[in-house]
Design a protein around this nucleic acid. Structure first.
Lengths: 282, 282
DNA sequence: CATCTGATG
DNA sequence: CATCAGATG
């Protein structure tokens, strides 16, 4: 199959933006994030052409599903430094990050042994901010991992975020595996017991935001309905826009005045998620 | 993908035959056999169109890799009775048989508990003969199952064949998982320790034939080289005709004067094996 | 290299 | 409906 069949008119899409802050400053930093559902399959579908089309300063990837030692060489991209994380279970979870400028430091995990065996977090430190890319644990069908997710991971992750935020403002992005409010998924009524929309997960996310962070997309577009970043492959959900907003840029409150835009690249194909992009005036 | 890409010009192939016995009688019974390497994948590739093109009286299938309860409904073919066998391990082994005329009886297995949990044999009884379709156990990489194959399966199978042959002549076909002589594979030198060409498997097959049976293809074409029915998917083996003759019609000696032809349908695609066909004047 | 299952999402 | 691993061939 050609890339045109898989990623219709990627070349024709407009990734430019003239967004400015509320007080008129133009953006000068673009960060993108995408749950790619398997980097090897994604490469076959020429998913990497999104990077060279969007040309963000930083691209965060989740669900690489690939041991770091097996990341294809073709994932190297001229002009970007690349960082990869994977865990103990082959083909499960995993994250990645591309950055045009070399970060001051890159760390993996959140510093807690029990959470750091699945390659779910990469943190890049820059001069004036941190970028944290996360693939938050899915609570699973039948919610077998709901307690782990909300009572262990989320709690420890909050502590991690808080500590970073004490040093520099934080840009936390990725597949956070929660649709926060009813507006954030097509079918809220039917999904109250589904992983990603349980009261526990939603309240936990509220608690995280309450520590001094905000959801950049919802801040800018409080009433925007039908804005999703994930559609199950089943039953042509994407064609019918039966989706969920699971991917976010969550920012430290003190970055609010630097926010220019937070957008969803809903037409970019190659995964059951689509990319999202953030524009900041740093 | 279209069926034309997968099975090039099946419609254009000539499946007719004017074969006669050595004393001039025209054939009136055609039997085909094919290891299809997964009936669900084979159906996707429109493998069933081989049946409606070849139009044999009987078609034997091996490696259906499908629990009987999960055989797709689309496998039903107008004008044919179908029989299926599968074992305890999902997606492993399994056989099938189509017949234009309803057999007097159809039985599964060879009557020995220890061999009959893998769906490897179907026997159809007709007025004047038996048709036995078999997917003989592979000895495996590193030959972990060589002893089981030669000392248990082959021995018990011989006993089964012998008993049938005492009642009516037998047409035994299928993937017998042995290349009998050096002429029956491209690379005999390099495969003496490979499953399917070990001395043990070859001698065991010789012993079976010695009980009053003959290899119909080799009987008719004793010098024919490069006549194979299987090519590994690896390394474009089929394109280079680096193959093995693993599929046979083995007949009771007393059917010899009824044999008209035994052919290999090497251009029929849809599996790593190709079909074979037998023409008899019954 | 291609088929399956079974886990995961 | 897809991804992946691992077994099997």
């Amino acid at each position: 199959m050609s890339s045109r069949e898989e990623i219709p008119s990627l070349e024709a899409m407009d990734f430019s933006s003239s967004a400015v802050t509320s007080d008129g400053k133009p953006w000068n930093l673009k960060i993108a994030s995408w749950n790619i559902n398997g980097i090897r399959a994604w490469m076959e579908k020429n998913g990497i052409s999104y990077l060279t089309s969007e040309k963000p300063d930083i691209l965060c990837l989740q669900e690489t599903k690939c041991d770091v030692s097996k990341i294809p060489k073709t994932c190297e991209v001229e002009g970007y430094h690349a960082y990869w994380s994977s865990g103990d279970t082959e083909g499960y979870a995993g994250t990645g990050m591309y950055s045009k400028t070399k970060p001051l430091d890159v760390t993996f995990g959140i510093g807690k042994e029990k959470h750091d065996k699945e390659g779910r977090t990469i943190t890049a430190e820059f001069e004036n901010y941190y970028v944290v890319s996360t693939y938050v644990p899915n609570s699973g069908r039948g919610l077998p991992r709901l307690d782990y997710r909300t009572k262990e991971w989320d709690e420890d992750f909050r502590e991690y975020l808080k500590k970073l935020d004490e040093k520099k403002p934080v840009i936390w992005c990725g597949d956070l595996n929660v649709a926060h409010q009813e507006i954030d998924l097509k079918n809220p009524k039917g999904n109250k017991k589904t992983a990603g929309f349980t009261p526990q997960e939603r309240e936990s996310f509220t608690e995280t935001l309450g520590m001094g962070f905000f959801d950049s997309f919802r801040h800018l577009y409080p009433e925007q309905t039908e804005a999703y970043t994930f559609w199950t492959y089943m039953g042509n959900a994407r064609g019918k826009n039966v989706g969920w907003r699971l991917d976010y840029f969550v920012l430290s409150e003190r970055l609010k005045h630097k926010l220019c835009d937070s957008v969803i690249r809903k037409d970019v194909m190659g995964s059951d998620h689509c990319p999202i992009a953030l524009f900041l005036a740093m």
